[in-house]
Design a protein around this nucleic acid. Sequence first.
DNA 1: AATTAAGTTATTGTATACAAGATTATTGAC
DNA 2: GTCAATAATCTTGTATACAATAACTTAATT
Lengths: 215, 215
Amino acid sequence: MELKRADQIADSLEQLVFQGEYADGERLDEIKLAEHFSVSRTPIREALQRLVMSGMAEQIPRRGVFVRQPGPVELLEMFETMAELEAACGRFAAARMTDEGLERLADANSRCRDAVEREDAAGYYLENESFHQEIYRGATNSHLQGEALRLQNRLKPFRRVQLRFRGRMAQSLAEHEEIIQALEYGEAELAARLLRGHVTVQGEKFQQLIAGLKH
Amino acid sequence: MELKRADQIADSLEQLVFQGEYADGERLDEIKLAEHFSVSRTPIREALQRLVMSGMAEQIPRRGVFVRQPGPVELLEMFETMAELEAACGRFAAARMTDEGLERLADANSRCRDAVEREDAAGYYLENESFHQEIYRGATNSHLQGEALRLQNRLKPFRRVQLRFRGRMAQSLAEHEEIIQALEYGEAELAARLLRGHVTVQGEKFQQLIAGLKH
DNA sequence: AATTAAGTTATTGTATACAAGATTATTGAC
DNA sequence: GTCAATAATCTTGTATACAATAACTTAATT
């Protein structure tokens, strides 16, 4: 790794933390990171600040910054928040989505269906993200869309794990179909409820999430 | 202003931007700020990064950071998002709030009532914040609570303006009473709907918000 | 006179040097 | 041998120096 720009370093660090390269509570040593990336401490410190801001690390003054891997409780909280954000997006999307938007959504979902038929978990993971992003976009509220994208990105590594479990992909796809219908018919409350349920982690999904944590 | 620590400088800068000290699109000059705060560019740059992260400024590489005052559209979007976040908090709070929490909420609201009777807009502004924060807390979801607090803080200067208008305080208080009842009875959907309406900006409130923008 | 190109200045981004506080190690006392 | 105190070392935070790029100015040409 020999990147040079501070924001690229921030992205790389984010990836490293996402990939579980660092354990929870581990200190991110400025000097070691500077050597690792072949830069001075200055851009490293900027990157660390970004990590802290995004909630992936904690800064203790005069002590350093420490990675903060979310525990089960915090993860559930984040998924719960995500469910509410998606429900809100669905509520607005039901009233505001254009025909073009609905078309893009249907397209994204047929790519999901293709992935399921190919039993391509990695592919489904990607197309599923697009599907949800089309709904955020359909909300026609840039700020809400931005917040949804932010949290979606933060939860990325944990959603990945869940898809490995049998039947999860097919069920997810079936729920997508219902959601599309509700959005097409403009049924805001139904769309919100379906999306909330689609994202909420409980029952079987909860077990899978916890199991995935011990990677 | 002669503070020294970087995070204090960030807070001060945030206040300055909030108070409309800087016009939209204005460049935040690192050197001038450094002189103003009697520090070097290093802590200034850290503070500026924080501003960018919180969305109050925009960074263009090799060009500088520029303040980004939200226009009417973005403001409405943020209030719409806030309404959904508060609705989500209310939904959870209706099911999860403890008796102690409900008591704190009632206390906060009676302080609101006192402020209305004193016709104390500044006081109402403060106590109203506490009222809403008790609901965020009542959601029993630290992450959601954090997001709600973040956006509440970002919208602070714009809510302030609205309260100047006649009758707004009394109406707000009346809505509080309904919300408390819904939460006490555990009516999640009702609480969510009431909070959404309480925060949503439309009709008369919209005119007031736009009027306040031209400070 | 207008436009373009080159040179100059100014500003951001990075590296290094220094200061202040925290951690660790060593030494001394009980 | 253990605990405490002090000194040495390490790490963060800030200041300054340098490099790279963008903005501006000036001059020359059409």
